[in-house]
Every structure is written in structure tokens, then in C-alpha cells.
Design a protein around this nucleic acid. Structure first.
Lengths: 215, 215
DNA sequence: GAGTGTGAATGTATTCACAGCA
DNA sequence: TGCTGTGAATACATTCACACTC
């Protein structure tokens, strides 16, 4: 239905729109301008973002909150539950386990992998931990499509390689180093020190940057 | 010296280049192609990224690792230590405290803020915790330029507002909701569930996206 | 009249390709 | 000859502005 192709930024904004819509009552109506205001964007951008995935509004009346919520959820793939493989079950790994363990979460950490023999074979926060060599077998059998890497930097590339071999489709990399994956695997780096460095770079070189509108 | 302006993406890649260079010996030389290969990019992109900040190489010989490391560090503002204010000292906050507490970290969490009276007045992991109403005074006095928000979603906007009033220049927002800040404040959202949603969106709608080269 | 959906215009980022230096 | 630094070309993303529908 939609002619143009979406940018990754559009996806991340959809995710933000959705968070905001979740706090509104289902029957309410909302216009693109109203929605934009709460996110510091423009109505045009909201409409464009939505247009990549379909036509959800009614001219002169705006969008029905309930319907819009449903459609954005579908566009983001949140109309199902996604099992996840966690590679590296240290402190950060445990925080993630807790963070995703809430009732309505669409993400569910299904298995963990760690080289530490004190962890393998056990359950941590209810999740079974295996040695990484079992990754391909387990990930395939359990039809897992997403992996999260929370290992130390030294083990990150190796972990990514194993995930790729296992047929994973997307990787969230929390480690402090970049990893390389084939282009058919969607990779997102979420190490926060990199983000801090972007901020300091920006503070130090203000005038050397394009204006940059957000995120 | 450089004519063109940098993109934020350039900054994030510089940060990655630097991580890689840190593992090499200082006296070594490296070409843009070699550096690119380890990060899954092209030599042209590496050279362009560097060119925003100066001219660091020698034709036909490449870059000296030591010099390049130094120059990128300077470009990213990592030639100094940055004090940081942490708003919300829960589980995630403590993980960040630990994560940044290593010897050579250029980021140092200097104060924490939390509304919980069991925390205010105490020290947690060596860091003094105050009530948020004291933010403007303390942040100004201690000349802090960066804030990290790790509060629950409900308190995120309020925290951001206080940080802005306190004269902060950059904010790293870990909360699960977007916040709005004036354009002179550099904001980065690092909530990982948003990133997961980008991945699922991508998996579900592959063909609806531009090719997307990385990150 | 009010607000959506979308082509066309602009602005930004990446890639190409080559001149010029060691 | 090999590799940097960079303008010119392309590809992508955002904004504008308006035709169209309720």
C-alpha cells in the first residue's frame, strides 16, 4: 500500500508515539499535531511516519487512539511475543532479565548462554543457562530470532558470529565494542558510553555539527 | 580547518574507531581501508569522518595509531574527565555507577538524585545522593554538564526539566519514555526496548525499509 | 472547516572518483 | 605507486504545501 520506503528513524519514532498513546484512553481521538507536540516533532513528520505503514486516520477527525495503537503495534511487530537469547549472563544481563520480566512485555528472554561453569546448567531468574557451544542447536529448535550480547568486549564478536550461525535475524549489542555481521542481520549497538561520547563530542564541537533534530 | 559539517553518525563511528585503535600498539601504522574492514565500513567513510576534525594521515603511509588515537580522543572530548549527574538511583542506576567506576573512565558520576528518603543524604557506591530539589544548586556549583536519567517513565520529563534548568548541556535518557528538551541541549535516548522494537519492525517489514547500512 | 495523505522541494549523509602528496 | 583528503554525484530523510476527504 505505501509507496515510499521507511527509514530506521521512522521506526524509532513510531515506538515513541506508541508509548505515548498507551497512556491515553482508547476511544479518544488525536490529531497528528497533538501527537507531535508531545514528542517535540511536527505533524507532517508524524503523518509521514505513519504513511509508510498504511492509512490510519480520518480527514478532519484525526486518529482514533485505539486503532492507531493497534496499527503501530502491528507495524512494529508487537502483536506477538518475541523469544530472545541472552549471551553473557553477568550483572547487566540480570538487569535485562528483570527489565523484560513484566506482565505485558512482548519480549521474553527464553535462554541464556555463558561460558562460566558455575552458571551453565542452572537457572537464573527462571531462565536456563547453557554453554555457548549449544547455541546453534538450541536457538534453532526454539525458533529464536533475536539475540542480545552482554558479554565483555573480548567475547562480543565471537558471540555475534555464533548468533549468526544459529540463524538469528537481529542482534542488540550491549558490549563496548563494535561487531560485524552480514547485512541480512539487523544489528543495533546500545553501548551507552558510545552515546556519552557523542554528547561530549557535540558539546566540544558544537559549531562543527549540522543542526540535528533530535534523538 | 575542515569545511564540511559532521553528522552525529560520524561521531558514533569515531567512538568505534577509537575502541579498535586502543587495542593496537601505538607505533603501528594503519590505513583507512584496514580500519574500515574491522568495522564493516569503507575506507572512504573513515577518511571522511576523520576529515571533519582535521588531517591526521600521511599520503601513501596511512595513519600513525598513537597520533590518531590522540586526535580522535580530542575530537570526542575525551582528553578530560566529565563529571555526571545521575537522576534516579535504582537498579539500573547502580549498574551504571559500577560500569563507569573503572580506572581510566573519562566519565565520572559525581552526584546522584533520588526522591526516596531512604537514599537521600546517604552515599551509594561512594556517590552522595540528594533530593532533586537541590539539583540546580549542586549541578551549577559542581560545574556538571551531563545528566543521565534512570527514573521510572513518570518522572522522566520532570527530571529532564530540572536538568535543563540546572544548565546542563547534554542528557542521556535511559527511561522508557521520550522527553522534550530545548534544542540547545543534546539529548540521546538509550532505552533498549525501543531498539528492540526497531529490530522487530525491521524483521517484520524487511522490504519496506531502505537498505540501511549499519548501526 | 479541519486535518489527513502525499508528491515536490529542500536539506543531510554517504559514496564515488580522482587530484595531489610522500 | 599507494594512500590521503576532498569536491562532485548520488542516495536518503525531512519539511513544505496543497489536493482531497469527512
Amino acid at each position: 500500500m505505501p509507496k515510499e520506503k521507511a527509514s530506521e528513524n521512522a521506526a524509532i519514532r513510531l515506538s515513541l508515539y506508541l508509548r505515548y498513546l498507551r497512556e491515553m484512553r482508547e476511544e479518544t481521538r488525536i490529531s497528528s499535531e497533538q501527537l507531535a507536540e508531545f514528542l517535540g516533532t511536527s505533524g507532517a513528520r508524524v503523518r509521514k511516519d505513519l504513511s509508510y505503514f498504511g492509512q490510519f486516520g480520518t480527514p478532519s477527525k484525526g486518529y482514533r487512539v485505539g486503532k492507531l495503537r493497534e496499527e503501530i503495534s502491528k507495524a512494529l511487530g508487537l502483536d506477538r511475543v518475541w523469544p530472545i537469547a541472552l549471551v553473557g549472563v553477568g550483572k547487566l544481563g540480570r538487569v535485562l532479565l528483570n527489565n523484560l520480566a513484566f506482565e505485558k512485555s512482548r519480549f521474553h528472554i527464553q535462554v541464556g548462554f555463558d561460558v562460566n561453569p558455575n552458571k551453565t546448567g542452572r537457572r537464573i531468574a527462571g531462565v536456563k543457562i547453557y554453554h555457548p557451544y549449544q547455541m546453534p542447536k538450541i536457538i534453532r529448535k526454539q525458533k529464536i530470532h533475536i539475540g542480545m550480547i552482554t558479554t565483555p568486549a573480548e567475547a562480543a564478536q565471537e558471540s555475534a558470529d555464533l548468533l549468526v550461525i544459529s540463524g538469528i535475524k537481529g542482534i542488540l549489542n550491549f558490549s563496548s565494542t563494535g561487531v560485524v555481521v552480514p547485512s541480512y542481520v539487523k544489528l543495533k549497538n546500545v553501548d551507552f558510553t558510545s552515546q556519552l561520547e557523542v554528547i561530549t563530542c557535540y558539546i566540544v564541537n558544537n559549531q562543527r555539527f549540522h543542526l540535528s533534530r533530535g534523538n
